[in-house]
Design a protein around this nucleic acid. Structure first.
Lengths: 109, 109
DNA sequence: GCGCATACTTACCTTTCCGTCAGTACCTGA
DNA sequence: TCAGGTACTGACGGAAAGGTAAGTATGCGC
């Protein structure tokens, strides 16, 4: 296994995954419950959402807090590392928004 | 086909691909020939490099210029859009560099 | 005329990713 | 007692992404 060749490479590895950008974006406004995330991120299945959340958790990007209640309650939030990542993503989001039309146009599939 | 849900989503779609971040990074310093890129981006195969370059070209991120010589010469460079993308990627690269150790540690596979 | 360098192209195969769907466990209220 | 809400878990399969290896065209120098 090679080491990352640059910071961008490492960052891309962390946010790589179909739903990760949207998860990060959703958590920007504060902690959210699992069900809230599922409703917010339209199109995602429970399995995928959990899988991506677990990956982000193992990278110390999101924090998972279980409240032992009935019905169960689990909250997901950004860690300090996750927040710093989100800040670094702002310019990228801005870029995407600025060029949304062209990007939609050159899209494939 | 759904539209992008946010700018970040669109941007992730553009830079998504195993070698795209490294291509973008390599081109930051100016135009490069195909062979130069292949040597710079260690581990990439010719097929993958071409494929990813074509995708970036179709998105108007890189420009491809053919010099009709023998042996053939083809130069790849960033378009204006590509340069603005690269600027937006700088904070992300910085973030990755800043946390390289932790990211390497939590890496899988 | 032979090897070399350039920049590809193609067929084929493996691996990884993602989606569908069914099932688990717990307590609540009707 | 039975559906409903919560947060998961796991088997299975198809699609997409990526890798391997071989082949193409061109002209140069020897």
């Amino acid at each position: 296994m090679r080491a990352y060749t640059c910071g961008l490479d490492a960052a891309a590895d962390v946010i790589g995954g179909k739903w990760k950008p949207r998860i990060l974006w959703a958590l920007h406004h504060g902690p959210m419950r699992f069900g809230e995330l599922r409703r917010e991120i339209t199109g995602v299945t429970e399995k995928m959402l959990i899988q991506q959340l677990r990956e982000l958790e193992s990278r110390d990007i999101v924090h998972r807090e279980v409240f032992h209640q009935v019905p169960p309650k689990v909250e997901y939030s950004l860690t300090a590392l996750g927040q710093s990542l989100n800040e670094a993503l702002i310019p990228l989001d801005t870029w995407g928004s600025d060029h949304l039309t062209e990007l939609e146009a050159s899209r494939v599939r």
